[in-house]
Simulated scan of single mutants.
Amino acid sequence: MSARAITGGCQCGAIRYRVEGGLTNAHICHCRMCQKAAGNYFMPLAKALNGTFFVTRGEIAYFHSSDPVRRGFCRDCGTPLIFETLGGTGPNVTLGSLDDPAAVKPGFEGAPEAKIAWLDDLAALPPDEDSTAWFDEIALSNHQHPDHDTEIWPSEEKP
């Protein structure tokens, strides 16, 4: 576990958070609930112990996906932020919501029985060279919050 603070937040910037002391138990969850919550084939998560996770801007909204579990998200943009077992030892943070998602490498896969069968083949897919201009055009009108804390958001400056 790292001693440095880890920061993150939602796509629109309405919610920002900080984790003091680092994250543990980094993993990829393949369960169907995580697939639905992420709108993806899996959800990458890591544990923030109780007393180390702090919301620094906004308020997380929750959906109880089962009796013991609630999932926190941004009500404005829909970004999934946390997975929390009620009465547990702390929330699991979605690794994609970190300001530096590459800083936390998952160490195992949860619910491997629900893993999409062809998921391991994705690394062999060819890049789409034709999409470069499209991504460049999107970048010119980016409304996404930058990957760092800001005093004011939305900012007067483009991210």
Score class of each variant (00 low, 15 high):
residue 87 G to L: 02
residue 149 D to M: 05
residue 77 C to F: 01
residue 1 M to R: 01
residue 30 H to Q: 03
residue 158 K to L: 06
residue 58 G to D: 03
residue 53 F to D: 01
residue 116 I to W: 14
residue 137 E to I: 06
residue 4 R to A: 14
residue 151 E to M: 06
residue 97 S to H: 07
residue 155 S to C: 01
residue 62 Y to D: 03
residue 49 L to A: 09
residue 95 L to N: 08
residue 2 S to K: 03
residue 61 A to F: 11
residue 120 D to K: 14
residue 30 H to P: 00
residue 91 P to L: 08
residue 140 L to D: 05
residue 30 H to T: 02
residue 132 T to Q: 09
residue 98 L to W: 11
residue 91 P to W: 05
residue 106 P to I: 02
residue 63 F to S: 03
residue 97 S to N: 06
residue 106 P to E: 06
residue 42 F to S: 04
residue 99 D to F: 03
residue 98 L to R: 06
residue 77 C to Q: 12
residue 41 Y to H: 08
residue 41 Y to F: 01
residue 120 D to Y: 01
residue 75 R to M: 04
residue 122 L to M: 14
residue 102 A to D: 09
residue 127 P to F: 08
residue 123 A to Y: 08
residue 75 R to A: 12
residue 35 Q to M: 09
residue 21 G to S: 02
residue 146 P to D: 02
residue 150 T to S: 10
residue 9 G to E: 14
residue 24 T to Q: 12
residue 133 A to F: 10
residue 12 C to K: 09
residue 15 I to M: 09
residue 114 A to E: 09
residue 136 D to C: 01
residue 150 T to D: 09
residue 88 G to Q: 02
residue 19 V to C: 07
residue 58 G to F: 08
residue 140 L to F: 00
residue 139 A to D: 09
residue 101 P to D: 12
residue 40 N to F: 08
residue 50 N to R: 04
residue 126 P to L: 12
residue 98 L to M: 05
residue 91 P to T: 14
residue 2 S to A: 14
residue 110 G to L: 15
residue 38 A to F: 14
residue 103 A to C: 03
residue 16 R to E: 15
residue 91 P to D: 10
residue 37 A to V: 13
residue 93 V to S: 04
residue 90 G to D: 06
residue 121 D to G: 08
residue 95 L to C: 10
residue 137 E to F: 07
residue 10 C to M: 13
residue 119 L to D: 01
residue 96 G to I: 10
residue 54 F to P: 00
residue 23 L to P: 04
residue 38 A to S: 12
residue 34 C to V: 02
residue 51 G to V: 03
residue 8 G to C: 04
residue 30 H to I: 04
residue 122 L to E: 07
residue 109 E to S: 13
residue 112 P to C: 12
residue 148 H to Q: 06
residue 142 N to R: 10
residue 58 G to L: 00
residue 92 N to H: 10
residue 130 D to P: 06
residue 80 P to C: 05
residue 37 A to C: 08
residue 80 P to W: 15
residue 145 H to V: 04
residue 122 L to W: 03
residue 1 M to V: 05
residue 41 Y to V: 14
residue 140 L to C: 11
residue 27 H to K: 13
residue 61 A to T: 13
residue 26 A to K: 00
residue 30 H to E: 01
residue 32 R to N: 12
residue 84 E to L: 13
residue 130 D to A: 15
residue 59 E to S: 11
residue 4 R to M: 13
residue 84 E to P: 01
residue 126 P to V: 11
residue 113 E to N: 11
residue 4 R to V: 07
residue 119 L to Y: 05
residue 15 I to K: 02
residue 38 A to H: 14
residue 9 G to W: 05
residue 145 H to N: 07
residue 21 G to A: 10
residue 64 H to P: 02
residue 27 H to V: 13
residue 35 Q to W: 00
residue 150 T to W: 08
residue 159 P to A: 15
residue 12 C to N: 11
residue 89 T to Q: 14
residue 108 F to Q: 03
residue 64 H to K: 08
residue 54 F to A: 00
residue 112 P to I: 03
residue 49 L to S: 06
residue 88 G to S: 12
residue 91 P to V: 15
residue 4 R to N: 12
residue 112 P to M: 02
residue 80 P to A: 15
residue 16 R to A: 09
